[in-house]
Design a protein around this nucleic acid. Structure first.
Lengths: 192, 192
DNA sequence: TTTTTTATTGATTGACTAGTCAGTAAAAAC
DNA sequence: GTTTTTACTGACTAGTCAATCAATAAAAAA
């Protein structure tokens, strides 16, 4: 009955990651059992444990996937930026891309924050994201802003804050992006 | 053995709320049992259920308590504000008050965000906080900012974002407050 | 004084869940 | 052609936890 095929590992792992995000989206929280994830991915709980070792590592893999997806979005936006001054705006636009507002992705991000406070490995992953965002912004603002380091910090926090509000209030994603771009312009154009 | 005294309800409820926040702080997450909370509050699980009905309502009461505490902090800061222009700065300072950075409070806020995505009642409470913050800021900025509504939105998001980053990275609370005040000045002083 | 209300708990239940294990079977290595 | 590796699962274990209940007792109301 069981028909094993070789080379299933990457397929199974990917299916589990996708299923995890989907389940988190459906439940709206981390209250998701390994059984639910495995069923959605079309396999037994035992197999899920076999490939990932435990629930924690399944969640961590799902979060890594979301961060990778986000990084891709930002890179795509950056590639389209022509002027040096346009790079900061591109990062903002990438951060508010459609894919970031998929219901399952929003749920995942919220649980991400909730989990980071207690789970060191999750916190490390979140710090990685925060550092990358700040570094990208600092680099983009060098030359166009009077204070690249501080302005990058401000923009990074503003992006997180606006995302949080937009994601949680079901408001228009576009408003949030516009608000961020507006502030970016204000920071750049100020006389100091 | 059991020595019941009248008028215990408010005392018990308050003790349970305090214990809930303490336990969330100790665990760093919502993975806290009613048993742990009840034990810390010095009573049986049955009594906790008796007064609150269920776990959900215990958590909700704890979150309401934290919001009340925060509102008090902001009101205290506002009372000290002299000029009209100083009111916005007061709100910022209140939002980064020492009490907001108590470990248990940080954990509670993080779980608050994580929970809001799945629990409608929790989301409503979070929206209440967001609306109040925005309204306070809009009011404070009227007359001093060229665009009070949009600037209030920006400042509200910035406060949330900076808090998130400060709380999660164990960085100096003061830096975050300074960054927010700096941006507030930039927004006010700009020529448009 | 009897009844009702309020306060309280130990013990229990019923449901759920992460992780394990023994076993089946195909493919690959030797 | 035997052995080892990889793929896979049903059934089970051991533990947890929210919520309930039956019972005790003081205080308040009747």
């Amino acid at each position: 009955m069981a028909v094993p095929k070789v080379g299933m590992e990457p397929i199974r792992r990917s299916a589990l990651v996708q299923a995890t995000i989907a389940e988190i989206g459906a439940a709206g929280s981390l209250d998701v059992t390994v059984g639910q994830i495995a069923r959605r991915a079309g396999m037994s709980t035992a197999l899920a444990h076999h490939y990932f070792g435990g629930k924690d590592q399944i969640f961590l893999a799902a979060m890594r996937h979301i961060l990778t997806e986000y990084a891709t979005e930002v890179r795509a936006a950056l590639a389209k930026a022509t002027s040096h001054a346009d790079r900061a705006a591109a990062i903002v636009r990438g951060s508010f891309a459609q894919s970031c507002f998929a219901p399952a992705t929003i749920s995942a991000w919220m649980t991400f924050y909730g989990r980071a406070a207690s789970h060191p490995e999750t916190l490390r992953l979140l710090h990685l994201y925060q550092r990358r965002l700040r570094s990208n912004l600092t680099h983009a603002l060098r030359g166009v802003s009077a204070d690249p380091v501080n302005d990058a910090e401000t923009m990074a926090a503003l992006i997180d804050g606006l995302y949080l509000r937009a994601a949680l209030s079901g408001r228009d994603d576009h408003d949030a992006c516009d608000a961020a771009l507006r502030t970016l312009n204000t920071l750049i154009q100020r006389q100091s």
